[in-house]
Nucleic acid binder design. Structure first.
Length: 448
RNA sequence: GUGGGUGUAGCUCAGCUGGUAGAGCAUCGCGUUGUGGUCGCGAGGGUCGCGGGUUCAAGCCCCGUCACUCACCCCA
């Protein structure tokens, strides 16, 4: 891959790469649907007001305007491209609440746009695959568990190697900080979130400078952030740190995360770790927070993130809590394609290339191709009767596995150009091996 | 937005102290005149990112600009 993009941050794939992407999207779609999530799309454009409701990332947002603005332009609502799938979904839920049955579960795989400086794994236009469950008034915690399980299964189904869902709970973190006497919990979360990047000593330093934490408080915050367990044993460590007297919020967090870990261990063993350093920058998460690391690609950052937001949307007195996770499809794909871990078996859908003996054979060759197509076998007819060597090479360049020949007696032969083997065949009966019917994904190393 | 690096063939890159633009791979042709891949021989392909300046002379030096890229911020 890695062609210089004429516009940085707006990735464009070659055909073989797009085929790989489609395979990934098909896989995700299947896993989401088999778990009962409905497909949904929202429009690319939202009003700026809608987008700004959930936090202050306004500098990332692409506003849209017409080149020829008229006098009405100033009066119409300002429009912008969505920067994620969650905020538009929240808007959609409130607008269509009367037509939806709650709890409502949907998946949504769409492009989003962010006006940030592109870097490896970071784009200005990219696809996110979201699943969310949204309730009317209340939403059971087991939805958090289910969302995590579905995403773990989706990532497993992609067979892209080992990954770890790193799970934490905001109630636990915030409750803990309050219990040790720190009030500005949001600021602490933001600093602790950088632990992996800047290390414990600088986190302690920033905690002292920014939130005025005492040495003891900073140390406790650090101790908490360094807890990582594959099961529910983190709870005992937290209790040991905080002592007898702790806030009810922390208790809730401990209960929730414990339940999460035991369910994940039962249903998707080995895929999750309770990691109390996970905080997430966005401030609308209220409970479960999750980030996902792809082993061998830790530098990419998270490939699947999200969590619980107690008030995804509201409409008058009605409040719609939600929980969701989002896979960064473009980030994931770009990494796997760049490293050569994923490739498509060919750059075209074509299975059979029908060669021409003479220019006049074109119509007869199309008849042959149609017989194959009627049976679901993708076929392409040569455009001119070049030397057979050239026609074979045409197929070879594109990865087309079979070339079809017809002799002047009307007998047919099909050649597997990988083995060179050529056998008699009939257009109404011949079929390729199942694995050649569609382009398939080739993994450099076979992954579980 | 702030700071560093890089722009030469389709791709990866070389090009010394300023002196007529190069290699490998890829492409095309021929050897092999209707069954590819190997091998051999040959060919095509460039506004050296763009604009200006210095100079007898600029890919190389200077100024500006654009793009790409890395880090920060933030995030998928």
């Amino acid at each position: 891959m890695a062609r210089n993009a004429s516009l940085s941050g707006y990735l464009e794939f070659l055909p073989a790469e797009r085929l790989t992407e489609l395979h990934v999207l098909d896989t995700l779609r299947h896993v989401f649907e088999v778990h009962g999530f409905s497909p949904l799309e929202t429009r690319a454009v939202e009003t700026v007001d809608t987008l700004l409701q959930k936090g202050e990332i306004d500098k990332e947002i692409y506003a849209i305007s017409r080149i020829h603005e008229d006098e009405r332009a100033g009066k119409e609502a300002k429009l912008a491209l969505r920067f994620d799938n969650t905020v538009p979904f929240a808007r959609y839920v409130t607008e269509n609440a009367g037509h939806l049955a709650f709890p409502f579960r949907r998946y949504q795989i769409q492009k989003v746009w962010r006006g940030e400086r592109p870097q490896a794994g970071r784009f200005r236009e990219f696809s996110q695959a979201d699943i969310d469950i949204v309730g009317d008034g209340a939403l059971p915690f087991r939805c958090d568990v289910e969302i995590a399980i579905v995403m773990a299964r989706a990532l497993e189904a992609l067979r892209i190697g080992d990954f770890t869902l790193r799970v934490n709970n905001r109630k636990l973190s915030e409750g803990f900080y309050r219990s040790i006497g720190i009030e500005d919990t949001a600021a602490v979360l933001r600093i602790v979130d950088k632990l992996e990047k800047i290390g414990p000593s600088r986190v302690a330093q920033e905690l002292a400078e920014t939130v005025g934490a005492s040495a003891e408080q900073a140390q406790k915050a650090l101790d908490l952030a360094q807890i990582r367990t594959v099961d529910s044993s983190f709870a005992a460590k937290v209790r040991e740190l905080v002592g007898e007297d702790f806030s009810p919020l922390l208790g809730e967090g401990l209960t929730e995360l414990s339940e999460m870990m035991s369910e994940l261990n039962a249903r998707v063993p080995g895929r999750a770790v309770a990691d109390l350093s996970i905080a997430r920058g966005l401030d609308y998460y209220t409970g479960t927070v999750i980030e996902t690391t792809l082993h061998g690609h830790e530098d990419l950052g998270s490939i699947c993130s999200g969590g619980r937001y107690e008030s995804l949307a509201s409409k008058g007195k009605r409040i719609f809590p939600g929980v969701g996770l989002s896979i960064g499809v473009t980030r994931l794909l770009s990494a796997l394609l760049n490293s050569g871990e994923l490739t498509a078996s060919r750059s075209v859908p074509t299975v059979v290339y029908v060669a021409l003996r003479s220019t006049e054979d074109w119509a007869a060759a199309q008849d042959i191709a149609d017989q194959l197509r009627d049976r679901g076998i993708s076929a392409e007819v040569a455009l001119s009767a070049e030397k057979f060597g050239k026609q074979i090479r045409y197929a070879d360049r594109r990865g087309i596995p079979f070339v079809w020949f017809t002799d002047d007696q009307g007998r047919h032969e099909v050649k597997d150009i990988r083995s060179g083997e050529q056998t008699e065949a009939h257009p109404s009966q011949w079929a390729p091996p199942a694995e050649d019917l569609n382009p398939h994904i080739i993994r450099k190393t076979e992954k579980l």
